[in-house]
């Protein structure tokens, strides 16, 4: 294949222009202020100071992390049993079908699927119509934390299920047989063997859920309403309405650092139990 080595050069140039330069631009804008031309680069931390000095932005950041965290936890709690059951279904064909059923929704436009919840959760929407039909009081569902978290769990749970499923099927089954031979009961062998061995799946699931959840801006906008602001909405607003790219870039960097920090914590949590437990 050596003879085709030069075929890679166009992509090196392309990826430098289309991938690297835009990332560098974000950094360049984040460390300069409006009016200070990026070309005449004058380093400043003003954007970051402005963010952390303003309690409104801090609240938004906290809320974004909280919503993404709750979403991630719910995805694990609901997704783990799903993955576990599918991994234990008899027959390769049935397993394949179930995995396909979990995957298909992820191929369908997220915005369209999120929009559907608007009709379901509205004040005069499907849920409330059904409630009043059976004589129950209606609920305030739309434009609440509940609606936003529901929308996020709905959109991201397939990723969690698929990651955990993969790690469960990759597992060496002989550990379980050994545990049974040594007298472990079902719960013990699950807690001491299956769960620790599926941790890598949970961790990559967390990555795939937390990351889009913390940066999402259309789910809060659609289901949380115009007043509902998460960090992604602030970035959207700075770029498309306020037109302050410098501040917007700084916020997106803060968002990226939050994600990296969270991932690091999740990886650490992964190492600790398996290190001590000694499977």
């Amino acid at each position: 294949m050596r003879s085709f080595r030069s075929m890679i050069y166009p992509y090196i140039i392309w990826s430098f222009i289309m991938i690297i330069i835009p990332m560098l631009l974000i950094a360049a804008y984040a460390f300069t202020v409006k009016g200070n031309s990026v070309l005449a680069f004058r380093f400043t931390l003003e954007n970051f100071r402005a963010f952390f000095a303003d309690s409104v932005f801090l609240k938004v950041l906290k809320r974004s992390i909280y919503i993404a965290f709750v979403t991630t936890v719910l995805c694990i709690l609901l997704g783990y049993p799903t993955a576990y059951i599918i991994a234990n279904i008899a027959g390769e064909k049935n397993k394949f079908m179930m995995v396909l059923f979990i995957t298909i929704p992820t191929w369908i436009n997220m915005l369209v699927r999120t929009y559907a919840w608007l009709g379901i959760l509205q004040d005069n929407g499907l849920v409330n119509t059904l409630l009043s039909m059976v004589g129950l009081p209606t609920l305030r569902l739309i434009h609440t934390d509940f609606a936003v978290i529901l929308g996020m769990v709905y959109n991201f749970i397939p990723f969690m299920v698929l990651q955990i499923y993969t790690s469960l099927t990759k597992m060496d089954k002989s550990y379980l047989e050994a545990a049974q031979d040594l007298g472990a009961n079902g719960i013990q062998s699950f807690l001491r063997i299956t769960l620790p061995l599926s941790f890598p799946g949970i961790i990559s699931g967390i990555t795939l859920v937390f990351l889009p959840a913390v940066s999402s801006f259309f789910i809060p906008k659609l289901l949380g309403g115009g007043q509902y602001v998460l960090i992604g909405n602030v970035v959207e607003n700075e770029f498309l309405i306020a037109g302050n790219w410098n501040f917007g870039s700084a916020i997106s960097l803060i968002m990226a650092i939050t994600i990296i920090l969270f991932m690091w914590l999740a990886k650490k949590a992964d190492k600790d139990p398996s290190g001590e437990g000694g499977v």
Partner: peptide, 13 residues
């Protein structure tokens, strides 16, 4: 990268 980061990078580029 979160899509929003890719998006704003390209927008500025």
């Amino acid at each position: 990268n979160p899509d929003i980061v890719t998006g704003i990078g390209l927008l500025m580029f």
